[in-house]
Every structure is written in C-alpha cells, then in structure tokens.
Design a protein around this nucleic acid. Structure first.
Lengths: 353, 353
DNA sequence: GGTTCGATTGACACCGGTGTCGGAGGAAGT
DNA sequence: ACTTCCTCCGACACCGGTGTCAATCGAACC
C-alpha cells in the first residue's frame, strides 16, 4: 500500500540476522554516506581515523561484507580467478587447485575451474569467451596451455591479468612462475650416477611440452657431473602416459646393451616402465633401477615404491594466486621449498655385479 | 567537457568489437525498450514473435551476451554452482568436476570449487559464508559432507538449491543422486563366489561413510546368492587409505584360517592389500585374490592390475549439475550407465587347489 | 459505435556497490 | 579579517540487468 516500507521493519530483519546488511544499512546506522563506507571497504587513505573506526565498528557489529556482484558490476571486473588447464593428471590438477586456494584464502576471491583442450581449433576464442563472460579478475595457466603463445597474446590483448606456470620463464617475471624442472632432472641424473650406473636411459614426455626438454636437460647435466652422457639410442619418446612409459621402457630393454637404469619423465611412465621390466623378467631394482618424476600417490602405491622427484605443485599454486591478486611480497619462506627434491624409495640401487 | 559523450563514438567501438554490447545497445538498435530485450533473454512468453525475432537478430549480429554480474545483482542470485567436497581422492574430485561441467556446458553457469573439512567445528558456518558471499545459485555435495545433516539443514534454512551425491537416498529425490554402491558390492561378492572362494574377507572404509556400509551390504548379498557368508573375523575396518588397506589386509592374512580373497572398499586400500600380500610372501592372484572399488587409474598401474568395480563418477556429476540447474528431464540414456560395473583384470582367480 | 479485455510493451525504480565532482570546514598565509 | 588551500565527505549518476505497474492497442463484446 504505502509507497515505501517503513525502515524499522527492515532493521528488525537486520538485527535478527534474517537479512544481510548492505552498504546502505551500514551508512545509515553509522550516520555517514554510502560513499564513505565504500571508502572504508576500499582502504581509501583520505579518511579521518575516527570516521574509519566508527564505520568499522558498525561493519563488525553487523558482520557486513560487500556484495561481490555489485562491486564487480561497478568495477567492471569480477572477483573470480580462473584456472585454465589441460594437464590430464588428476593429482596435479587437485594439488594445483589446493595451492591456488591457499593463496586466495581470506582475499574474497573464488576459484573457477576451466579445463580445456589445447588441440582444439577454438581454444583461444573459448578461453576468451570464458574470461569475458565472467569478467574474470585473472587467470592461472598451467602446462601445457601455459606454453601457448596464442593464448598469451589474447590475454594481453584483452588486458586480463594472468600468471603462467611453466618449467621455463615463458613470459616476463610478473607473469610467470617457473617450476625448475631442470633442477629435478639434475637430481635424478646425479642419483643414478652416484649409484654407479654407467648406461642410463631416459623416457621423455611429449616433445611439445617444455618440461620434457627441461627434465632431460637437467638429467644430462647431472650425469655429466660424473662424466656420463646420455646415448641417443637410450632415449625413448613417450607421452606422459602409462602406456607410453611401458612401450618406451620395453624398447630400451630390448636393446642388446641396454641401460641398467631408466629415468622416466613422470611417475605414470615410470609405473609403465615397472610393468615393462616385469614382463621382460627383470626385477627392480636389482636388474633395473627406475626413477620417476612428480611424487604423486601412484609412486608409493606401485611395487617397488618409486624413487622419484617431488615437485612442489601445491606450493607453486599458492605462489601463482598470490602473485595474481598482488598479495605476494613478504614471502619469508625458504625459496628452497620451491625446488624439486629427490625422494629415494626402493626402485633404485646400484647396478648388478 | 560536454555532459555526455555522443552516442556515435560508442557505436563505433561497438562495431569494431572493442566494446561488448549491453542490453542498452541492443534495445536502442532494435528500437525497443531494454525491458523488452530482457524479456527475450528470459524467454518470457508474452512477446510477439516478430518482436522476438527482430531482437534476436540484433543480439546475434552483435554477439550480445547478458552480464552475469548485473543479472545476478538484480536476481539476487549468482550463476555460480559450488562443488563442496571433502573426498581426498584426486581422481574422484577431478572426475566429479568434469561431470559437473559436462552438465553445465552452454548453460551460462560456472563451477566454483570449495574443498572442506568435515571434522572442522566451523564446517557449517564456513559453507554458509561461502554460499551467501557469492550468492551461489546452488551447490553439489559429495561424500562424505553430502551425508552431513547439519549442512543439509543449513542449506534448507537459507533456501539454497542443492544436490547431495551419496550411496543411499539421504534426502528427497529432487535433492539426491544415489550412486548404487550396494550394487557394486554385490558384483564383487558374486564374482568371488563364482570363482569358487569360500573364505572371503572385507576391508571396509570408515564406518562414518555410508558407502562403507553399502558396499559391504551389497558384498554380503552377492555372497549369499551362492550360500556364502562374511565371517565377522574376516572383516577389517579401514579408512579408504593405502596404509589402512595394507594394515587391514595384513591382519586378515595373519589369521590361522584366513581368507583366500579380499574385497577392499576402494582401490587405494586394494593397492595396500597387494603390498601386504607381497610382504606376507603371497602371490596374487594365486594365493590371494583382491578386488577393489572405483577403477581409478591406480587400479591398472599396480601389479597385478586390479579387478575392481567401476563407479560412473563423471556420469553422476553430469546428472547432479543437470538436476541442479533444472535441465534434467529428457534423459534418453540407458539408466544402466549409472550402475557400477565389474572390471575383471588380473588380481582375481579361483582359490589354489 | 462505445466498452471491455487480454496481450504487448515501456517508464521508472531498484539491486548494491563505485567514480566524479563539488562543498563544507579548518589551518595557514598576508 | 579575508583569501587560499587542503582535507574530508556527500550528492548524484552510473554499472547492466530485472520487477512493478501502468499505458497502448486491436479484437471481441453488447
């Protein structure tokens, strides 16, 4: 009937917690304009401390939190972070998500996931539509989409914040996080060399992945520290899949003077190598040592448990989201936490005899 | 200088694709009010077909898509779906996410992930804050949070749409998707009985998970079809973890007249059972048959590859999101697709002798 | 032919925030 | 005492949609 509901009724709902407070409520109760409340929310410096405190008290009392949608509408930008990935390994994806969420906690941002297919002809427009539709604040890209320059160019063009996680610096420092895969490969190479192996093999990931080259490069570096080299015929090209690891290892083991140790580009392929060894009647580690990469769950579930390189995926994820929302800065943690490390289990030993 | 920028300049940006069209642009160009454009977006029935077509043509020409934030603000509800989970298995989580995205494709909704800890004392308020902050359209809950009545009560109280994925109907049909774990257990029981085993063991998941009871119940049902029963001393309580599977199996294998076959509540525990058998000097399947549940990657990576029950997680996820956004209905797929199925590999055979 | 009525459509306020700009008020300068 | 300047704050429009309600229109009615 009456043109406007009387305010007291609204306030009752507010007090009772049946209605969330809005900026108007806070402004009215604190006796200021909504713009001033907005200034408190956005940490504007030009505010008298008393005013700020008065408003903060009211905000605290009513548990007010600004509506991200309304704020986003006015800002022309949402408070959502997109994770764009094409890595099919579930554990990688989940660890990355957990890390991203670690870095976003308490920031008011949310994580929206967006798997994609790098082989798709509509990759770039699809990602673009995703970003523009939701007016994403920014995106995190992981390998191998993170290595796609077409996608990166589009992101720059539309002015979307982004962080690319990759095994080498594929972009300027503010836009990339490097995973130091080379260092991981080096640890694997050193380990096998130190155990006394002379003939070692390598099963690479797909050559379209930078990490394949980095892991191999580091591996060769580790070997060379001990005067060893990686013979070309002892390298098999895999695809980061179990089956490709099985086939690659089978090929190497069929060689007349094959390797006594194999470094596989990831745990999945190392598990395949274990199966290949079993089929060839070889026991691990006595007849063949195997080293993996990632230290995902599978590494400790297979038999024998895999010696592998642990990659700090979750930590990397945390860094990525912190960098994206500009909360980086005072990172007091040891940078060594971000380096891959070697986890020695039972799949490696010195060569027989 | 001038109070308003002349429109022509804006239109140039629009034509050039440098500016996204808004409802105002469409209305102006189509020569109608924005409210009428809004009506075509929302499929309002009271619109003359010619008007609708005229507007749709303009929308198509400019590739207009409504801004979810603005729409959400007016609707007091976002177009985000939350996935709330506490299942620590990466593959489960990723498959579920993929399934949810399958069901949401083209609907304009996005998926926001929210892992949680069911043991936390602030579980309910945390989830509530998550939902209210983003004004989520709805949420999907997976085990075991999906079985929490406190969470469900809160969801009903705040009027949030939700779908609970669980192994039994924990809520009314419109709010739950049941995974038929009992049927999966039955397949495992039948399989082992048909192979000729007489003494079989079971390693359960945590008793706080409904699925633990369902899988066991189905298993016993399958056994009983062949006149077998599950002896109480042949049951070990696990926790769905590799280690608990290892310990549980070790306990059963140490029994004087232990089981010749073990059904583990999931693949992780089955992998643990494999390790326990190896440590006990038993070979699988000759001395011990092992059956898992889930058919995650690990099942085919261990040695011997596991006979296991495949759960259609991705399919379940698709159903969940379709139900949530009300796109269910004409599902012409075979309902049998949603039933667990048995995948026979090399970890099972008849008992020795 | 005037009236009634349902089907279409538009004007306007509103969702809950932010940007712009101008005004009030006190301190400092002359 | 009168400017001048700076600090702090509010009025108002706007972001891009939707809800409400009234206006318009042609067809059907008496």
């Amino acid at each position: 009937m009456s043109p406007r509901t009387p305010k007291p009724a609204d306030d009752a709902a507010l007090e009772g917690g049946r209605r969330r407070a809005t900026i108007n409520d806070i402004a009215r109760i604190a006796g200021v304009s909504k713009k001033t409340v907005s200034r408190v929310i956005n940490r504007s410096p030009s505010l008298r401390p008393e005013t700020r405190e008065k408003i903060e008290a009211v905000i605290a009392k009513y548990g007010y939190a600004p509506d991200p949608q309304a704020r986003g509408l006015a800002f022309r930008r949402s408070f959502l972070i997109g994770l764009i990935y094409d890595n099919p390994n579930p554990q990688y994806v989940v660890n990355m998500q957990l890390g991203l969420l670690d870095g976003m906690r308490g920031s008011g941002f949310e994580l929206v996931v967006h798997p994609c297919d790098r082989g798709s002809t509509t990759l770039v427009p699809d990602i673009r539509a995703f970003i523009e539709r939701q007016k994403l604040f920014g995106v995190v890209l992981t390998p191998s989409v993170s290595e796609d320059e077409g996608v990166a160019a589009m992101l720059r063009e539309i002015g979307c914040e982004y962080v690319r996680v990759a095994s080498v610096a594929v972009d300027e420092a503010s836009h990339s996080i490097v995973t130091q895969d080379r260092h991981g490969g080096l640890l694997a190479g050193r380990h096998l060399a130190e155990l006394g192996h002379r003939r070692v093999g390598f099963i690479s990931g797909p050559l379209t992945f930078r990490s394949s080259h980095e892991r191999r490069g580091g591996f060769e570096e580790g070997l060379s520290e001990h005067g060893l080299t990686l013979a070309a015929e002892h390298v098999a090209e895999g695809a980061y899949t179990f089956e490709s690891g099985l086939e690659g290892a089978a090929k190497l083991l069929a060689l007349p003077n094959g390797p006594t140790a194999i470094f596989a580009g990831n745990d999945e392929m190392a598990a395949g190598a274990l199966h290949a060894a079993r089929r060839a009647g070889l026991s691990v580690p006595e007849d063949l040592s195997v080293v993996g990469f990632d230290d995902f769950q599978i590494a400790s579930r297979v038999w024998p448990p895999l010696t592998t390189v642990r990659s700090p995926t979750r930590e990397i994820g945390r860094l990525a989201s912190e960098k994206l929302i500009g909360q980086a800065g005072d990172d007091k943690r040891d940078p060594a936490d971000r380096l891959p490390s070697l986890v020695v289990r039972e799949s490696t030993s010195g060569p027989r005899g």
